[in-house]
């Protein structure tokens, strides 16, 4: 069963200077394309990961999936409902209760003036549900104690706060949780605890995760399916095994090569060339062509589509990659 269907999703941001400055300084409008024509599907009870470097649009996609941002073009369907077009408030309410989010910064994502009990119960309280004992139960499920419910967020460490965020996300009994870099602010040993917790909860509650991260190793550990983003475009999609053993897109290859290896003692790698281009003026054709060792004239003029490979198990957007099914 597909729980999330993202179809030709595009998002622009207007980053122009104010109107008056534009007129007086004769500046053109500046439109930043954060996400460009991205399509993917997430199976129920699976972990779909989006990886990419800064500016790849991964967080923007996450925000659109949970409904914090409107898509500029394309649409997102969650359990076959398009939240931005649906008019029946009951259905909207029901779908919203099924989506939750875990944020990157455990210090900013909890209201510092609220007791933990109220923070965790808010998703339910906001809908007028019964909250008695709920926070205590959830706290114990995420490995904290029920007595913590009356404390304030500042009394907890980063890892514990992230556990509280997980508890809040679970409160409304969601099916889908979007995790935006949930462990990148945490230390390694704490990260291990949180990742393990998320894995346990997934089995226990039958959750689906959209896991957004820049950390390839975390993604490899967590995901069932990985989408690699570059400059707002999905360039490759495959299972972790396929992706890490045999990356097809030159960008994925570069990314995997550049990632530090724990057993790469004194490895002298050829450092990757170039930098991520300006998303306001992206390169023509394939966005990766200025840095790509395989680039041809076609790559400069034409944007490759994300197509399935012969085995039908993975997709890649590259003219030079392995033979594609038409």
């Amino acid at each position: 069963m597909t729980i999330v269907k993202v179809d030709h999703l595009t998002r622009f941001f207007d980053v122009s200077k104010p109107w008056l400055n534009r007129v007086t300084e004769r500046l053109p409008k500046r439109i930043l394309t954060a996400v460009s024509d991205v399509s993917f599907e997430i199976e129920e009870r699976s972990v779909y990961a989006l990886v990419g470097e800064s500016g790849s649009g991964k967080s923007t996609i996450g925000k659109m999936v949970v409904g914090l941002l409107n898509p500029s073009e394309g649409h997102i369907k969650i359990e076959n409902v398009n939240l931005f077009e649906e008019t029946d408030p009951q259905i909207i309410e029901q779908i919203r209760a099924n989506i939750q989010m875990i944020f990157q910064d455990p210090f900013a994502s909890l209201n510092p003036r609220w007791r933990v009990r109220d923070v965790i119960a808010e998703p339910v309280a906001a809908r007028g549900g019964e909250v008695k004992g709920l926070a205590e139960k959830l706290l114990e499920q995420v490995g904290l104690s029920a007595a913590d419910a009356k404390k304030f967020p500042h009394e907890f460490s980063g890892g514990q706060r992230q556990r509280i965020c997980v508890a809040r996300a679970l409160a409304s009994g969601p099916k889908l949780i979007v995790c935006d870099e949930p462990t990148s602010a945490l230390d390694v040993s704490v990260q291990a605890q949180v990742l393990n917790l998320m894995n346990d909860l997934r089995d226990e509650f039958g959750l689906t995760y959209l896991f957004i991260s820049h950390d390839l190793t975390v993604v490899q550990h967590m995901a069932d399916r990985i989408g690699v983003l570059y400059l707002g475009r999905l360039v490759e999609e495959a299972t972790p095994a396929d992706l890490f053993e045999n990356p097809l897109h030159p960008y994925t290859q570069m990314l995997l090569e550049a990632a530090p290896k724990i057993d790469g003692f004194g490895r002298d790698l050829e450092p990757p060339q170039g930098e991520i281009p300006d998303p306001i003026n992206p390169p023509s054709g394939c966005a990766y062509h200025p840095r790509c060792p395989l680039a041809t004239a076609q790559c400069k003029s034409e944007r490759p589509e994300l197509l399935q490979t012969k085995e039908k198990t993975r997709r890649v957007a590259c003219f030079k990659a392995e033979p594609l099914s038409a």
Partner: peptide, 23 residues
């Protein structure tokens, strides 16, 4: 423990090694 909890070193394992407690 630190080595065990890096996902880098735990290829294929479902659970990462956890150091109990906190600093």
């Amino acid at each position: 423990g630190l080595m065990g909890s890096t996902p880098l070193a735990s290829k294929g394992q479902k659970r990462l090694h956890q150091i109990p407690g906190m600093m």
